[in-house]
Design a binder for these strands. Structure first.
Lengths: 198, 198
DNA sequence: GTCTATACTCTGATAGAC
DNA sequence: GTCTATCAGAGTATAGAC
């Protein structure tokens, strides 16, 4: 039996392994997932896994790099729909939630499995996360510049507030749960923006 | 060398083990922490650990039970300071953050290490978490009843929004970070309450 | 009640056939 | 490039001395 379960679609083993690892890391966590499980879910034998990825940690790293790339490009794409910084906050919130609940397992892993990386890989990851945070801070500064928000706002704290509520969506969202991702995003954006305008 | 490191204060080994496990689970995650590490940090030999806790999972469960008890009593105590439901939301937010960033490792573990439990223990945990959520929903309904909030508010979504932002504090808070827990809570409460009043 | 020694399983990773 | 077979080490848990 060359391909035991074949849970994953892609023909390219490297892509299939990443996809399988993403699902498992999200479901069970990095440390609790074994390389054998990943290989099986990808329809590959355990030994072959190490041909594509030298270590388990390198799979996590690749996944996170994919996650940060998707987060950044999603953020930038969202901003194209409007020039108004206040509108753009809403658009960015929606985009962030869509990524988190979508198939892009990398984004979830990026948020919640950072402890799995050690040494240089970890510092590299933190730097990438900081870059995404900086995108948000820039947007929030722009919004402040319009004069339509309260003047005393702490940008960093506001970013942490917004990202906290949206990141948490990944913990409770269910596709059968009634609310669609964009509806959740709009509801959150309503409260946040209304709260910041005062 | 009977007590190798003695990182933990308590004399009662059971308490010391829980304390040590809480710190390690919070720092490295449940799956990545070994029972040897817990035993060493508590100043107990690995074999003795299993005298107090039959399995590693039972340590996690005990920690979570401690966490939910502390969360519930903290919530109730916070409400004693005011009779106004709107004020109480602020007080509950502050209390929740204080618990998360304080020593009570159980609260953190309760939020982020639920995957470590399996079977009956897991369903039991979910039920306990639901009970805490119900406390919040009750408070939010009360606040709605005052007529001072927007009428169309979705209580569940609002609770998830608030708890998301405050739960995330556990991921970034640092004691050296300038802002004290209550300041963070007040800032969040300002934005949320202002946003819900409209 | 606490520690020593160890059983046994599972883990990540490798070597080498094909 | 992919699979088979296997290694060395780490994992939880146990048995039994004291």
């Amino acid at each position: 039996m060359p391909k035991p379960t074949l849970v994953v679609e892609s023909d390219d083993p490297q892509v299939g392994l990443l996809e399988a690892a993403g699902k498992l890391f999200r479901q069970k966590g990095f440390a609790a997932t074994t390389v054998r499980e990943i290989a099986e879910a990808a329809g590959v034998w355990p030994g072959s896994l190490h041909y594509y990825f030298p270590t388990k940690e390198s799979i996590l790293l690749a996944l996170m790099e994919q996650g940060i790339a998707s987060a950044e490009s999603g953020f930038r794409r969202a901003l194209e729909a409007s020039d108004d910084p206040i509108d753009r906050i809403r658009l960015a919130i929606r985009a962030h939630i869509r990524m988190l609940v979508g198939n892009e397992a990398g984004t979830y892993v990026l948020l919640y499995e950072g402890r799995g990386l050690t040494g240089d890989a970890r510092t590299a990851m933190v730097r990438l996360r900081d870059r995404y945070d900086a995108l948000w801070d820039g947007l929030l500064y722009q919004a402040l510049g319009t004069g339509r928000l309260q003047s005393g706002i702490d940008v960093r704290l506001t970013r942490l507030f917004i990202l906290g509520s949206v990141n948490w969506v990944a913990q409770w969202y269910s596709p059968d749960g009634g609310r669609k991702p964009d509806e959740i995003g709009d509801s959150f954006a309503d409260t946040v923006l209304n709260g910041l305008v005062g």
